[in-house]
Design a protein around this nucleic acid. Sequence first.
DNA 1: GGATAACTCCTAATTTTTTAGGAGAAAAAT
DNA 2: ATTTTTCTCCTAAAAAATTAGGAGTTATCC
Lengths: 119, 119
Amino acid sequence: MKELTKAEEQIMQIVWANEKMFIKDIVEQMPDPKPAYNTVGTFIKLLEGKGFVTREKVGNTFVYSAAVKKKAYTKNFINGFLSSHFEGSAEKLFSFMVQEKKLSVDQVEDLMKKLKDNE
Amino acid sequence: MKELTKAEEQIMQIVWANEKMFIKDIVEQMPDPKPAYNTVGTFIKLLEGKGFVTREKVGNTFVYSAAVKKKAYTKNFINGFLSSHFEGSAEKLFSFMVQEKKLSVDQVEDLMKKLKDNE
DNA sequence: GGATAACTCCTAATTTTTTAGGAGAAAAAT
DNA sequence: ATTTTTCTCCTAAAAAATTAGGAGTTATCC
């Protein structure tokens, strides 16, 4: 899977959150200062080229949707993140987060219960 | 804390792994194709500007060391990662990793035991 | 039905990141 | 002691990422 730059990813997050989007709608959902219409258009074209979005005509305007699932991308992203920062080890990341108080022992135990129930 | 670009971070990882480094030593530890001496020099200068390394003269040559701890940087990095991909929630990342089989229930239980022992 | 607005496609300016060359000083080598 | 190597500092070319303008087309609005 191709990598996304920060700006591309920002657009993509909006597409993922919204099913079908016109360029116009994406611009609207961007945080201020909102970029020009054509700026978003350029990124959407780049995303199309990378296979992340597809388009179809609705009336006389293109509407865009995600062609790669957010989960698939996130998984890929985490793999890269793990390998560059935690020697590829999810355990190391996990331990780090507990030690650095991003996650408490109690939280983990609660979550484990819930996750086991869903098995 | 300032952000690092990919190339800057790559240099920084080498500095973190080695206490005190001459430019020459950093070049040696770079993966092939090794960059030019001056390329590494430029990045070190950028890192100095961002406050990530300090230098001191040894003989007539500068030697560089990390001025920001790797842990501090990683923590910061994870915060950014969490907020852009998991709404800032470490729990969500944790659940995601278990669900996506990056971490198994057994692994987590083992790790929890070890972490509790170290408390 | 001419002006105004919306969209597409192409192109390019700007900014950021990455890479490295050149000049000069200092040290080492033969 | 002059050639060769090494390091520093300054500068800038090359590549990648970000931003957006302009021309043409079609739709919309008085």
